[in-house]
Design a protein around this nucleic acid. Sequence first.
RNA 1: GGGCCGUUAGCUCAGUCGGUAGAGCAUCUGGCUUUUAACCAGAGGGUCGCUGGUUCGAGUCCAGCACGGCUCACCA
Length: 578
Amino acid sequence: MTDEQHSETDLNDQMRERRLSLDEIIQQGFNPYPHKFDSTHTINEIIARLSSKTGEELQTARPHIKAAGRIHAINKMGKAAFIRFTDGRELLQIYLRSNEVDEKTWNLFKLLDLGDFIGVEGFLFRTKTGELSIHAESLTFLSKALTPPPDKYYGLHDIEIRYRQRYADLIANRSVREVFEKRSAIIRHIRSYFDARGYVEVETPMLTPLATGAAARPFKTHHNALDIDLYARIAPELYLKRLIAGGFEKVYEINRNFRNEGLSIRHNPEFTMLEWYEAYSDYEDLIRLTENLISELVEKICGATVIEYGERKIDFTRPWKRLTMREAVIHFWNKWDYLPPNIHPWETGLREMKQMLDDIYTITHDPGRCAICDAARKRQSESLAEQETPLERQRPTVDDLATREGLVEWINKLPDNLKSQISNLKSLDYGHLLGELFEQVAEPHLNDPVFITEFPVELSPLSKQSETDPRFVDRFELFIAGMEIANAFCEINDPADQRRRFEDQMKLRERGDDEAMVIDEDYLRALSYGMPPTAGEGIGIDRLVMILTNQKSIRDVILFPHMRPEKGDSGQGTGDRE
RNA sequence: GGGCCGUUAGCUCAGUCGGUAGAGCAUCUGGCUUUUAACCAGAGGGUCGCUGGUUCGAGUCCAGCACGGCUCACCA
């Protein structure tokens, strides 16, 4: 144990005190780490079932209680005391009098520290201020906290410690636990939704010889006995469709995908994906299912159809909007100068920014000394004026955006800051250019749920082409709060078509696109046995949980988000390493 | 990897112009038999992230490094 590795001088005064008090507890004959405690109720149950009782009712009934929990606060008043303890969800008070418990219990009480676990036996009553409390008859020692808990009032704010030591975060910040309880409820609801409709939950390999089924760089590992390289899967897609070829008509999987990419507020290298596939359906069926499923979740988890997300509101009122990718570009053309505060959450809106700059200007303005401030202020004023009296600029039409030449022409009309985001303009094909344009012009504005349809074929190597226009595929993505939440399409089931699409991807790979998809011969063999018409969809669970629990960062909905290893630790956490 | 910001007691945070390191909670001692972030009186607790530099003197100014956050790039 690491405890023995610390000399006494390494410990701060509080940790030394706690070790001394543990020794004293042992001295007094208590088992310092007993195996179990039989409760009559959890603290949560006591509050749920008995908090409606009045003081008089409790005085008559004197409900007998045995309950266990962690000590949150101690108020000692000479020969009496209040202890607040918790089951991690709710706090409950214990009232203890030296003349009403045996000497052993009173001596134990004097050795307790915040964070220790105790069991209490007694009866329920209300104090004179009306607070539900357990009048203790005896205390049982259950476990020692050798490290003091974070501040009981201010909690634990240090973001690094919160993520690295999630246990301390959970002790200190009750709202964190609520987020993860909601996450659990969301996943439970999703499972029961699909189970009730006859989908079979399956598990497909997470270590795979090929990393394919999505556009991403994989993690690579090695299997010693077989002496082969394996990849952590970037998507379960091709395995799930093998199952449809094998005769399952409806399957779903909820599990982790791994992508070897940077970390951000919206990206964790491992993330949870729901994917499902259904035979004889098309993407219109999936639009209906998606709207239905997420509406149910919003209602169940948030209890409303308009919810708050940061400083914005998201309106889930049905039916949700639908725009083709080109329509979205046209719709948000000219809007790039101004994103209202409810579009950019947690960021200062333009108007506030101007006010701030005006204030700074008033306070510090010294002509000729504050050039940067002047310039910034001027720009903000101009943007604001433009937003208030929008110039009716020309917009592209659907036909303008139908050819590569048209796209290049309109991309060249973008403001420099957006245009510069689109690199290698010359080498990109029609589909990739349209994707870039959509991303720059429309995506940040997609706040309320909206289905984006009519994806170009070049961006969709697994999607069936549209029956009416082969430049596009029968695919949609659902956007909420500017984030891509779902991706769905009619699956290619013609093995010849799929082979051509894979080959196009391999050409991109040869030209240096290391995220282009890898050809999967076994998947093509599966298709050759015949796969019924099929539609499939993936939903990013972490991002959905972010929206439903109003969390800014994906790290706030993942219990142990990835961090750089701590100094002096090789980062394995478990201590088990090669 | 680039840019911006941050790192002070166990926790949450102050720290003015460069001049002996501060508060609340927590801890310790004493008091208090219905408290509510209990209260009252007293005490202990710091390598100011690390390494250099400037200076008579650095928590404060400068440089480098480490770690973190946000952001950009990549992506869902």
